[in-house]
Design a protein around this nucleic acid. Structure first.
Length: 390
DNA sequence: CTGTCGTGGTCTGGTTACAG
DNA sequence: CTGTAACCAGACCACGACAG
C-alpha cells in the first residue's frame, strides 16, 4: 500500500494487471507522459473492472501520479546503474516471476496436489467434531456411542470425545452440534482463509485453551519464509465476541472451503502463466498458492505425514500435539493418551443408511449430510463415510 | 548446555500521494 | 519535473521457551 490520500480515504494500490497495462502504455510512449485522454480512459477502464466495479473509482489523478512516479523511478534507476539497466524496466510481474523461480526451483504444483489429495481422497474416512455443552468448545469425536430422538425431532447422539474417557461422554444435538471435522491449515492453505469465513480457532485463555467457532474479520497476508506461513488473521470468537490476531497454526478451516483450494490447484495446474502473473503477494488481492520452497524440508515431510494420516491431521504446526482435540490441559479435561478408536464401516453410496425406519437425516451446513441410524448404530456422512456407534 | 522453534521488534524496499 | 512523506509488507534479528 502506498501513501493514503490526505482526504482520509482508504489507501489505494493498483493491481498487477493494471500495472502491466500501464507499463505497456508507458513503453509505447517511450516513457513519455501519455495524453490526458489516455489517462482518463485508463481510469475509467480500471474503475469498471470486475474487481473495482461499484467499490473503488480510480481517479485520473491516480493514474497520472503513477505515470509520473514510474517515469521518475525509471530514470533514477538508470542513473544509479548505467549500463546495467535499460531505459525501460522489466515489467513488474516478470520480476516477480524471476523472484519466485529463484526461490522455488521445484514445481509449484506439488503442494497443491498434496493438499488436494488430503482434502479429497484422504477423506475416505470422514471424521466429525462435536460441540461440548460444558464449555462450548469443539472436540473431535472418537466414537458415537448411542443415539436417541427427542420430542422436537432433533436426534441426539452420545459421543466419546477423542482423547477423553467415558466420564466426559456427552449427549449432543446432531443437527446443531455435530459436523464434519474442521481441517488444520497447512502453510500453503492460508490462501483459503478469507475474511468472513467461519473457522475453528484455538483460543488460549488464562484458564483454558480450546477450539471455538470464530469468524475471520481480516487477513494480513505476509510473505512465507523458511518457517512457512506467517500470515495473521484477525478473528472474532462467536461465543464471547472477543477479537484476536492469530497465526495460521491456530486456525482450522471448514471443509466447505475445500473448493477454493481445488480451484487454486486447477488454476496452478492449468499453466504457469496465471501462477506467474496472478496475484499480488503484497496485497493478497488474489488467491495464490505459495511454492513449496517456502516451507522448509522438515515441514514438507510433516505435510506428507499429515496427508497420509488422513483426517487425523493435527494443527499445522501445533508443536508436537498429536491431535487438535486434547486442548491444552489447563482445566479439568486432561486427556489420557487414548487412541481414538473409530470402527469405520464400509462406505455407502447415499447419505441415508436407514436399515430401519428410525433413521434420521440431517443436512449439515457443511453440505455433509449426517445420518444417524439406530438399527445399525452408524452415523453416515453425506459422501458415504460412516462412523460407528460404539 | 545446545539446538530448535515460536514470537515480537526493527529495518528496508516498494508503492502511492502530494508539495515545491 | 523532482523530491519527499506516508504507509505497508517482507526480511532480518534478538530473545525466550522448550526438548534432548
Amino acid at each position: 500500500m502506498g501513501r493514503p490520500p490526505s482526504n482520509g480515504g482508504p489507501a489505494f494500490r493498483f493491481n498487477p494487471n493494471e500495472v502491466v497495462e500501464m507499463e505497456a502504455i508507458l513503453q509505447e510512449h517511450k516513457t513519455q507522459m501519455p495524453a490526458r485522454e489516455v489517462l482518463v480512459a485508463l481510469a475509467d477502464k480500471f474503475s469498471a473492472s470486475e474487481e473495482r466495479s461499484g467499490k473503488i473509482v480510480v481517479q485520473m489523478k491516480q493514474v497520472w501520479n503513477w505515470f509520473q512516479n514510474r517515469r521518475y523511478a525509471i530514470r533514477a534507476k538508470a542513473a544509479k546503474t548505467p549500463g546495467k539497466l535499460s531505459v525501460l524496466p522489466m515489467p513488474r510481474d516478470e520480476s516477480t516471476v524471476v523472484r519466485n523461480v529463484s526461490q522455488a526451483p521445484q514445481s509449484v504444483t506439488v503442494p497443491s496436489v498434496q493438499s488436494a489429495g488430503r482434502t479429497v481422497s484422504d477423506n475416505s474416512q470422514l471424521e466429525f467434531e462435536a460441540k461440548s455443552a460444558r464449555d462450548g468448545a469443539w472436540y473431535d469425536v472418537a466414537t458415537f456411542l448411542s443415539h436417541r430422538s427427542l420430542e422436537t425431532g432433533d436426534p441426539d447422539v452420545l459421543v466419546r470425545f477423542a482423547g477423553f474417557g467415558p466420564e466426559e461422554d456427552e449427549w449432543v444435538n446432531v443437527r446443531r452440534h455435530v459436523r464434519q471435522r474442521s481441517l488444520p491449515c497447512e502453510a500453503s492453505e492460508c490462501v483459503a482463509v478469507l475474511p468472513g469465513d467461519l473457522i475453528l480457532c484455538f483460543q488460549e485463555g488464562k484458564e483454558q485453551a480450546l477450539y471455538f467457532d470464530a469468524h475471520v474479520l481480516d487477513a494480513q497476508r505476509r510473505r512465507h519464509d523458511v518457517r512457512g506461513c506467517r500470515c495473521r488473521f484477525l478473528v472474532r470468537y462467536d461465543h464471547d465476541q472477543s477479537e484476536e490476531i492469530v497465526p495460521l497454526r491456530k486456525v482450522c478451516r471448514r471443509p466447505e472451503t475445500d473448493y477454493r483450494l481445488q480451484q487454486l490447484h486447477a488454476i496452478n495446474e492449468s499453466g504457469s502463466v496465471n501462477q506467474q502473473k496472478g496475484g499480488d503477494p503484497h496485497t493478497g488481492n488474489t488467491l495464490r498458492v505459495y511454492p513449496p520452497i517456502e516451507t522448509p524440508p522438515q515441514k514438507q515431510q510433516k505435510v506428507e505425514v499429515h496427508a497420509e494420516g488422513a483426517a487425523m491431521v493435527p494443527p499445522a504446526s501445533h508443536g508436537n500435539v498429536e491431535t487438535k482435540v486434547p486442548p491444552v490441559p489447563t482445566e479439568t479435561k486432561i486427556p489420557p493418551p487414548v487412541p481414538t478408536e473409530t470402527r469405520v464401516l464400509q462406505p455407502k453410496n447415499s447419505e441415508v443408511s436407514t436399515a430401519g425406519n428410525v433413521g434420521t437425516s440431517v443436512v449439515q451446513p457443511s453440505n455433509v449430510t449426517l445420518t444417524s441410524d439406530v438399527a445399525t448404530n452408524t452415523i453416515t456422512g453425506g459422501s458415504g463415510q460412516n462412523m460407528s456407534l460404539g
